[in-house]
Structure formats: structure tokens, C-alpha cells
Design a protein around this nucleic acid. Structure first.
Length: 520
RNA sequence: GGUCUGUUCAUCUAAGGGUUAGGAUUCAAGAUUUUCAUUCUUGCCAUAGGGGUUCGAAUCCCCUACAGACUACCA
């Protein structure tokens, strides 16, 4: 009985728990989505929990709507949150601004134990020191080598310090970085990494506005929320020693989470990490959902609005930095969960390839059922003012989806099922519309009128016979007829088009082409 | 500048001391489609450079180059 209980407790203690901890400073970038995804996949592969924690400790950077955006984006991607601001959970609240009161006690604990100290230097003073150092080609750091000459509880007398504190002088709490200490980490992605604390500075843990910085809040919350694995972007690697030292200072080293640092997502061309501008310049979204900047009113496009399917989008992201070690490329979310492991995450940054994204979307488009796609296409159709029976939309979708990359392209590839062409492709006109073609088209219209049954096979056969009897060139006829019906040289089988738009419309399109293109 | 991390076809990547360095995307050619797209076939294309270690190196070590991240009272 007792052993069973212990076993149970141990199991509970070992339950994998990860968190995605964005700051609500704007829309989620695809790099952020991938971080969330890898956290989610890792958690679910191991039967663990995925938490969402909102890191809104910087009040100056808070952007209204960003938090809701993050949640909506994760939902669209199919990433399900086990604990979070909306889902609640045993460690609520999940918004750091709502946990504000909690952190000062931890900061105090560090001061009491000598791991941290008060600093009274103003931002202006520090800025001045930085620019002065820069002017002589050096870098100012608030560290072991400089702290004695600055305004803090280590340099000031106890009495002076207390006076300042009781007078309410603005101050921050800084971590007292130990001297010449090697801090080692075994990163699940990068392997063994080590740092010397002499190269590190005394980071601010608690700001003068009463809010903790990322470093303090992050460590405290990860501990309190029983996070077992921290999976985050590579940009955090340099702060690993600080975080490890914080766990030690709190006496939490035994339960410290394991770290994994994901490689960056790079620009498709040129140098640097992927940014919003790359998307604008090259014509692809960098955000999962469209985003309207509440200040400027600028709208950034989103994968969802651009007609990407969430599972294809997720599949594409999963392959950026991770691979299964097999030649399989198409993965459903469940398959990803099944195959995912941090060991197979690469160390080097991946260039983002918009072409591959399109390819993935095409793969998913042809795999989705016609009904489902037609449902997704319906809003686009409505926007065009087209109102037709759903089964027709389904049929058209099935006919054109193979030639589409995106849901919205169903319109480009199949608008002529719903509406007569308004323009005719100039190139095709000059290539096909000559030498008595208009007369042939007129004869074909008459011929169509003689047919008894109007369906693709029963149009095709007599039509072929008719053309053969006339001794006309098939290529010319088929392409010219296509020009009349769709306005160009594309689209599915011509007889399917005839059947679907109907006899009357077919005749009418031939007539209007004759009228508008003339008899040459 | 300093610290840390990385570097295999144009791109995403496989190969963890022994393979003609494999796959996918893009691109090109051909076939199919009386159109376009799809599909199929074929082709092009890579171990950053230099030193070691070893019978043997993409793989281990060193140097160089290049790239990136960090170096805020931002996360």
C-alpha cells in the first residue's frame, strides 16, 4: 500500500510539464509558434502538460489584443493548452502581472541570503556610464568589477542604505554574480555548455516599478508551476548561467528544469533572423493570423487569412529544425506527437523557405475532402457575391483543388463555374482566335442546341464525332472553346465545365465571345 | 569589442570513423493532360577553408573564415 503510494507520488513528480511563455507585445511570430509547437509536441509525446503563461511584466510594452491573439493563434494551430489564463489550473494565475505580489518576497529572500542587493543608480546615470565607456571603445557592465564604485547596498554603508530605502528612493534589486565560477549546463539540444561568471553582469531581478524582470519571474514561476523542461529560443542561451545560479540561490537545484535551446529561423535570403519585413517584401506571412496594429492601424497578413491550412502550416513548421530521421514528410499532429523527440532537433538555424510552405499547403489541400475544402471556400465565395447550392461548390472544389496551393485559389481556378469570364487572355486570343474560328464556334453553339442530354460524357462523344466529320483541327477547337468558356487556357476538363454551367450558359458564353472578340 | 552558439546541394535536411554522401523543395528536360495544374521519369547541384589524429574523416581535435544570438530597470 505504502509502496504503491510512493510510486504514485514519484510518477506525479516526474510528470513532464512544459510552458510556452510569450510576452503580449504583439502578434506571435512563426518562430514563436514553432517554440510553442515543440513544447507541445514534447509534452504530449511524454504524456505531459502544456501550459501557457503570459509574461507581461513590462507594462510599457503591453499591447492590447496581443494576448487574445496568442490564444487564438494556438487554437488555430491545434495546440491545446492544459493550463493557462483561460483554462485555469492548480497554479493560477497564469499571467505574471496577476502574480505581481508573489515576486517581491522571493527578491527579498535573495537579498537576505546575500545573493542579491539593492541598487540606487538611476537609468540616466547608467546610460551615461555606458556611453562614456563606448566612447573609449569599452563596454560598461554592472558587475563584480564595477559594483563597488556604484550606488548600491554593497558599496553604501548600512545606515545610508536604510535611509534611502525608508525615504522611498527608487531602486532595483540586482543579482550578485559570483566571481570566477564555471557554470555548466547539459542542454538537451546543444549538449554540454559552460560559462564563466566573470563574463556576466549583475542583472536586474526586480525593477523600480515593483515588477520582476524576466529572469526572476521566469525562474520563480517555472519552479512554482513545477516545470520540468524549459524549451525556448536560442536567444536565451546566454542567460542560462544566471538562471541556474538563481535556482541554486533559492535552493531549488534538485528540481531545476532541463533546458533546451531551439535554433533560430532565418530570413529566406540575406542575413539575420526572419522578420516581419521579409514577409512584406517577399509576399508571404510571418504571422499565423492577420494582425491589425492597434496604434498604426497597419494590417499584417496571416497564414490563416492567406488560405493556408493549419495542419499544413504546422507540418511545415515542425520540419524547421526537426526531422524524424526517416523520409516521411507529411505528418498529422498525432503523428508528430508520436515521432517527436528533442534529440532530433538540429543545432543550426534554418532558413525559412516560403516555397516549401506552399508545397506543404498543396499537399494538405489535395488530402482534405472536397466537402471540407468547400466549407472553407464558402466565405471567399460569399465575398464575391456568389450564392450557389453547396453541392455545386463541393463539386467545383473537387475539380480544381489539385491545381491550387491555397483555398482562395479555388476561386482563381474555378470562378468560371459561377460567373462568365469578363476578360479574355490576349495571348490565347492571338494564338487561337483566327482563320474562321468564330464561324466554327457559332456552328458548335448550334450543334450543342441539338443535343438531347446535357452531361459530360454525352456531350463529349457526339461533339468529337461532329468535329471529326467537319474535319476541324481538335487543338484549335478545344482551345478556342475553352477561351470562350473560361477566358483563358486553364481549368479542368472542358465537358465537365459545359455540364456544370449548363447548356444555356454555354451557348451564351460562346455568343458573348463572338460578340466581344469579333469575327476577325 | 567581449561571451556563447552554429556552418552538408540554391533551400529544408539524412548519414554519430568505412555508402557511388540519401531524401524533399526549387530549377531544367521529357512523358501524361487535345489547355493549365497535377502526376510520372530524368537531370543539375553539397560536406566553408586550412591543418592534424587514423589504414580510413562530413563525422574526432586545432586554427582561420563566415554567420547568428546575447551584451537594457525588454522579453
Amino acid at each position: 500500500m505504502i509502496t504503491l503510494n510512493l510510486k504514485y507520488i514519484k510518477m506525479m513528480a516526474q510528470k513532464i510539464r512544459v510552458r510556452f511563455a510569450p510576452s503580449p507585445t504583439g502578434p506571435l511570430h512563426i518562430g514563436g509558434v514553432r517554440t510553442a509547437l515543440f513544447n507541445y509536441l514534447f509534452a504530449k509525446h511524454n504524456g505531459g502538460d502544456f501550459l501557457l503563461r503570459i509574461e507581461d511584466t513590462d507594462q510599457t510594452r503591453y499591447v492590447p489584443g496581443a494576448e487574445a491573439y496568442i490564444m487564438e493563434a494556438l487554437e488555430w494551430c491545434g495546440i491545446k493548452i492544459d493550463e493557462g489564463p483561460l483554462e485555469r489550473g492548480p497554479h493560477a494565475p497564469y499571467r505574471q502581472s496577476e502574480r505581481k505580489e508573489l515576486y517581491s518576497a522571493y527578491a527579498q529572500q535573495l537579498i537576505d541570503s546575500g545573493h542579491a542587493y539593492y541598487a540606487f543608480d538611476t537609468a540616466e546615470e547608467l546610460d551615461a556610464l555606458r556611453t562614456r565607456a563606448e566612447s573609449v571603445g569599452e563596454t560598461f557592465t554592472y558587475s563584480n568589477s564595477t559594483r563597488a564604485g556604484l550606488n548600491n547596498s554593497l558599496s553604501l554603508s548600512k545606515c545610508d542604505c536604510e535611509k534611502l530605502l525608508t525615504s522611498g528612493a527608487p531602486h532595483v534589486v540586482r543579482f550578485k554574480m559570483p566571481e570566477n565560477l564555471i557554470v555548466e549546463e547539459v542542454d538537451l539540444i546543444r549538449g554540454h555548455v559552460q560559462f564563466n561568471t566573470d563574463q556576466l553582469d549583475d542583472k536586474v531581478l526586480f525593477k523600480s516599478d515593483g515588477m520582476p524582470t524576466y529572469h526572476l519571474a521566469n525562474v520563480v514561476d517555472d519552479h512554482l508551476m513545477e516545470i520540468t523542461h524549459v524549451i525556448r529560443g536560442e536567444e536565451w542561451l546566454p542567460s542560462v548561467p544566471l538562471h541556474i545560479l538563481l535556482y541554486r540561490a533559492f535552493g531549488w537545484e534538485k528540481s531545476m528544469p532541463q533546458f533546451s535551446h531551439l535554433p533560430l529561423i532565418l530570413k529566406p535570403v540575406g542575413k539575420g533572423k526572419l522578420s516581419k519585413r521579409d514577409g512584406d517584401q517577399m509576399g508571404f506571412p510571418v504571422f499565423p493570423l492577420a494582425w491589425k496594429d492597434p496604434e498604426t492601424g497597419d494590417v499584417s497578413r496571416g497564414y490563416r487569412e492567406d488560405g493556408y491550412l493549419p495542419d499544413g502550416f504546422i507540418n511545415m513548421l515542425s520540419m524547421l529544425g526537426w526531422n524524424p530521421g526517416t523520409e516521411q514528410e507529411i505528418f498529422s499532429m498525432d503523428q508528430l506527437i508520436n515521432s517527436f523527440s528533442l534529440e532530433r532537433v538540429g543545432k543550426s538555424g534554418s532558413r525559412f523557405d516560403p516555397e516549401k510552405t506552399k508545397w506543404y499547403n498543396h499537399q494538405y489541400l489535395i488530402r482534405h475532402s472536397d466537402e471540407e475544402l468547400a466549407g472553407l471556400f464558402l466565405p471567399y465565395l460569399e465575398a464575391k457575391g456568389v450564392n450557389v447550392p453547396f453541392p455545386l461548390v463541393v463539386r467545383v472544389t473537387g475539380l480544381v483543388k489539385e491545381r491550387c496551393h491555397f483555398v482562395n485559389e479555388i476561386w482563381d481556378q474555378g470562378f468560371f463555374f459561377f460567373r462568365a469570364p469578363e476578360t479574355y487572355d490576349e495571348k490565347i486570343i492571338s494564338k487561337r482566335w483566327k482563320d474562321g474560328v468564330p464561324e466554327m464556334m457559332a456552328e458548335i453553339a448550334e450543334f450543342f442546341n441539338t443535343l438531347e442530354n446535357w452531361n459530360a460524357p454525352e456531350i463529349k462523344e457526339p461533339f468529337s464525332q461532329f468535329v471529326t466529320e467537319k474535319g476541324w483541327n481538335f487543338g484549335t477547337i478545344m482551345n478556342s472553346l475553352r477561351l470562350c468558356l473560361v477566358g483563358g487556357s486553364y481549368g479542368p476538363d472542358i465537358f465537365d465545365i459545359c455540364e456544370i454551367i449548363g447548356l444555356t450558359e454555354t451557348i451564351s458564353r460562346i455568343e458573348s465571345a463572338l460578340r466581344r472578340l469579333g469575327r476577325v
